[in-house]
Write a protein that binds this DNA or RNA. Structure first.
Lengths: 344, 344
DNA sequence: ATGAAAGCGCTAACAC
DNA sequence: GTGTTAGCGCTTTCAT
């Protein structure tokens, strides 16, 4: 900000008052005469006085900035989370500083470090896929900065966590396929390092066994979950099985789009021959043909909740109370579309 | 950040040195003995000393924070811009504070104000659709905070601007329709307040006249550009014209998806009966059937360029040189898909 | 090469 | 009610 700004000093001189008196007036303290207050406000208004926040932050050792680190911004799920975070943070007077790790652990590390330099009051982070070590987060905690983990969590650290119920989402997705009469259900998944994919696999398996369907390990295919062509290739592989599946639960919508492509190309009908369901309920799921059934995640609400938990910890900290870190599990929902229930 | 942090004072006492000496050592100043430097660094390392950035910001009256305000985060175009901004800002050691106006002028105003309180070093902003007045931005400039306008710009203020060539994008889109033999070309657009839609309309018209096609004002339909169903409705209206168009240029991809839906429902063939082209080249454009031709915008690069311009102005400011605000126009590109050229 | 003193703008503690 | 003093942590003169 510019240097030639009005300071308390200037107001004080102009009014023949002391600096603290002007400060008191502007901060609406009780022990100051109404008349002085009026004069001070008047002049401050006239000269467009603006508090120097640097001085205040320095004095209070508080920035009113919340740091947010996510793997990537250009992603429906994460941008919705951010949206929730920003809108909610504003209500509490907090600003949001954003950084993306691009799924790189080194980058994440760097982000935490620069945030620390910027003296953030708290951190909300969704770990990169390549993050194993969480010393950087513990280090923040040691410096009294609350850390909230969101979606991409880890059990390696004692902190507040927000996840959506990937297990249950996968369970109801699989159960839905069973409910429409499918029994040979495949699962396209990705790296099983992240908590989310692990949980989705677990939900899928549990739904199968709960409904006396056999779990066939040939039916679980791993691929890059961000890529449509990978979903396509994975499905081609499934179609080459001696017994081809009659239902596919994909861990992401984009792979499901690839799956649909592959199935149609092979002259099979969706959902009659093979039903498909995705996960995340992106915009594309209603655009693809047939429209894709999916599991919706409460992304925006997760962001909102993250701020709530952070604000809570922040105020507990302020009162020097002990903090019991909470874990919030948020509900997913089944969105039925043509790829499972056909044209209605 | 925590209160119980190590200060220069602590290091100084421990080493029997003065505070300035320790400061000099840590800042690697020339006028300090190598031996002292070594000792200081050693102890700093051992005690995990961390500069108090609040003090430094206070002293320098600089935050190394860049504020970014965009209409909405959950939007392919804007999230890509942000991505470019953040990745590029990092290279220069700047952090990015993000805010969304949700297309509300009041909200935008509030965002600028809280950013100002957070002492941002510069602002990159894409105006809300409802912003007419730009006093809030001029006010920032008065306080020596450079402002960069991106995509949603205005001529009401003298500041650096980054836009993509909407005019030319619309021109080549329309020309492309003409080149595949279409002559009755409609345009689905939205509110003409924003610079972007105005330019797209202008490019469309120019391409028509340049190629001796008649401009029919019934062929220009206004609707909400964010909504697929609005695109659908607009197209239905076009299909009720006594002479229905053989090509539609939609100002956004999502309306184009609605258009495709309407055309298919009416038993017409794409592109044979009616060709469709969108604008922005979202992810959905390659998922819809037929795949949608579109105009791609260099969103990520626009974000990157915004930082470059900002950094440039910032360093000119530092040297007290006069700043000549630049306007950067970035190229769009034609992406041909089935909706205009059919299956190849 | 090092220390002493001053100051960034503000607020809280202490006087009167 | 208002003024005086001090201090947040750091850097930058100015001495020596």
């Amino acid at each position: 900000m510019g240097k030639h700004n009005i300071r308390l000093k200037d107001l004080a001189k102009e009014l023949g008052l002391s600096i603290p008196s002007v400060s008191r007036a502007l901060n609406d303290k009780p022990d100051i005469s109404f008349e002085t207050k009026r004069k001070v406000f008047e002049l401050a208004e006239k000269l467009h006085y603006q508090r120097n926040q640097f001085a205040i932050n320095f004095k209070n050792q508080q920035s009113f900035i919340i740091g947010v680190i996510i793997p990537k911004i250009v992603h429906h799920f994460f941008s919705n989370i951010i949206s929730g975070i920003i809108n909610e943070a504003e209500k509490y007077g907090y600003n949001v500083m954003l950084f993306q790790s691009n799924e790189s652990f080194e980058s994440e590390l760097k982000g935490v470090k620069t945030f620390q330099k910027s003296m953030i009051d708290g951190l909300i982070i969704s770990l990169s896929d390549n993050t194993q070590d969480v010393e950087h987060l513990k280090h923040l905690q040691d410096h009294d900065v609350p850390v909230i983990l969101i979606d991409r969590i880890t059990q390696e650290i004692d902190a507040a966590k927000i996840i959506c119920d990937d297990y249950n989402g996968a369970y109801i997705a699989t159960e839905h396929l069973i409910s429409i009469g499918k029994s040979k259900i495949a699962h396209i998944t990705g790296s099983l390092t992240p908590h989310t994919t692990k949980e989705r696999l677990r939900g899928y398996q549990k739904a199968l066994t709960d409904h006396q369907k056999t779990f066939n390990e040939h039916y679980v295919i791993n691929c890059n979950l961000e890529s449509r062509s990978e979903g396509y290739k994975a499905t081609i592989k499934l179609l080459s099985e001696k017994e081809i599946p009659d239902g596919i639960f994909c861990a992401t919508d984009i792979t499901a789009v690839g799956a649909i492509e592959a199935i149609k190309e092979n002259g099979l009908l969706i959902p009659d021959d093979i039903a498909v369901i995705g996960f995340s309920n992106w915009e594309i799921s209603s655009v693809v043909e047939p429209a894709l059934s999916s599991i919706s995640q409460p992304d925006y609400e997760m962001g909102k909740k993250a701020i709530e938990l952070l604000i809570e910890e922040l105020s507990l900290k302020r009162e020097n109370k002990t903090i019991k870190h909470k874990t919030h599990i948020m509900k997913t929902a089944l969105i039925k579309r043509e790829s499972t229930i056909g044209k209605q």
